[in-house]
């Protein structure tokens, strides 16, 4: 067996264990949704005086990408991966980077098709935020529950993130693409997520105690 075929076989095994075929199908579905939603605004219930908020679709369309990117780190072999050497940790970082880049490319392109370049930039920024939160969620509750914190954050931002005219300082997903502060915050959240992924030995979620990641 040559080194190249060996390498591909290794990638195939990793992809199978992490259900990457299903994740790809999820990416495709999320891309279709992003294309359809690209030019639309969502009207959702909110706490402001009108009782609803109108938000760009790019506040919501990165959510499935983020949940898939972070959730795909969960593997069928998770119980054996708990005791893996540093090789797995490096592979997971590469996996996350590739998943994030692919998601950014798909989401950005899909939003550009029916939306605007600014909207695409906002979508990518929101993707960074949600991926960071999904990684933190994976560490807190286990990787198969990577969706909990991003969805919670979405609810929080949607309902309380705007006074009806202006976004609140912490509702970065509502800010326009040229808000430097929102990009700094997105970078910080993503950094926090990546730190949560790599900083502790794999295999132990913080809550509930002892659950496998």
């Amino acid at each position: 067996m040559t080194a190249v075929t060996d390498c591909w076989a290794g990638l195939r095994r990793y992809a199978q264990a992490h259900h990457l075929a299903q994740v790809s199908a999820g990416y495709a579905a999320a891309t279709v949704v992003a294309v359809i939603a690209g030019g639309h605004d969502f009207v959702l219930p909110a706490a402001n005086s009108r009782g609803w908020t109108e938000m760009a679709s790019t506040v919501a369309t990165p959510l499935p990408f983020a949940m898939l990117a972070a959730g795909s780190l969960h593997s069928s072999m998770a119980s054996l991966e708990q005791a893996a050497s540093g090789r797995l940790a490096r592979a997971e970082v590469a996996h996350l980077a590739a998943a994030l880049l692919l998601a950014a490319a798909l989401l950005g392109t899909a939003t550009l098709v029916t939306g605007s370049p600014g909207g695409a930039a906002e979508g990518v920024r929101n993707l960074l935020i949600y991926v960071g939160l999904a990684l933190i969620s994976g560490r807190l509750f286990s990787r198969s529950l990577s969706w909990v914190v991003p969805v919670g954050a979405f609810v929080l931002v949607d309902f309380w993130g705007s006074d009806g005219v202006r976004p609140r300082w912490w509702a970065w997903q509502f800010m326009v693409y040229d808000s430097l502060w929102s990009w700094v915050a997105a970078g910080a959240v993503l950094t926090g997520g990546v730190a949560a992924l790599v900083a502790r030995p794999a295999g132990r979620s913080l809550w509930p105690p002892g659950r496998r990641a």
């Binding site: 009207v43 959702l44 219930p45 919501a60 969706w147």
Partner: peptide, 28 residues
């Protein structure tokens, strides 16, 4: 999977915001 079903529920709920005729909620 513990991962796919919540996404299905999220799609079901958020999909309503995009498709008005299928809404199960009112804003006011």
């Amino acid at each position: 999977s513990r991962f796919v079903p919540p996404i299905a529920v999220a799609v079901c709920l958020f999909g309503q915001t995009m498709l008005r005729p299928f809404r199960f909620y009112v804003l006011s």
